[in-house]
């Protein structure tokens, strides 16, 4: 683990990493939203979170392009306990290879029932954020390990196949 570079994160804490038990709250929040507002309400929440709360990141991505995207994800996962992630910057895209998702790992370790749609949150949130930044996002997920792609229009990525995002299992 290396300490996150705070200059790359929009909101900065005094400690180098977050508390993994907060993943329980994120999972519970998704369950509550899907139960009360339906899947459409949950997606709307994620999209508005992506455009609103994350707007400082989106602005940096828009201004700094793919190098800013790569720097952000390196700093982001340095601050998440238990993450094993590689970030590769290419000419037309950034590939974030999540070998071990820290959230799925902690939810399993804690014996929590993982919301089936959990992995899809990265796609809905990421798409809202990249659209605001003039970029494109795709996700190929596999229930605890996945690959995020953040790309410019030049990459001409095929449309997202939602079947490529596996359902999370406890």
């Amino acid at each position: 683990m290396s300490a996150p570079n705070p200059s790359e994160l929009p909101y900065v804490d005094t400690k180098p990493q977050g508390s993994a038990d907060f993943y329980y709250a994120t999972n519970a929040t998704f369950r509550f939203l899907i139960g009360r507002l339906g899947r459409e309400g949950w997606v709307r929440y994620l999209e508005e979170l992506g455009r609103g709360y994350f707007s400082p990141v989106n602005d940096r991505w828009r201004a700094g392009g793919l190098p800013a995207v790569a720097r952000y994800w390196r700093a982001f996962f340095d601050a998440e306990p238990g993450a094993r992630v590689e970030v590769q910057a290419l000419s037309d895209r950034v590939e974030v290879r999540v070998h071990e998702c820290p959230a799925i790992k902690h939810l399993r370790a804690g014996g929590r029932e993982i919301v089936g749609e959990f992995c899809q949150h990265c796609y809905h949130l990421g798409t809202a954020r990249t659209e605001a930044a003039g970029l494109t996002m795709r996700l190929h997920g596999d229930n605890g390990s996945c690959r995020h792609t953040y790309a410019t229009a030049a990459a001409v990525l095929p449309p997202q196949d939602m079947n490529d995002i596996a359902e999370a299992r406890s």
Partner: peptide, 23 residues
Amino acid sequence: MIGCYDFCGHYEWTFGWLERAGG
């Protein structure tokens, strides 16, 4: 991804969103 490092930030944001969505 929604992280745990800045959890308090998006947790607080969620309260406001929920109040607008359902009072």
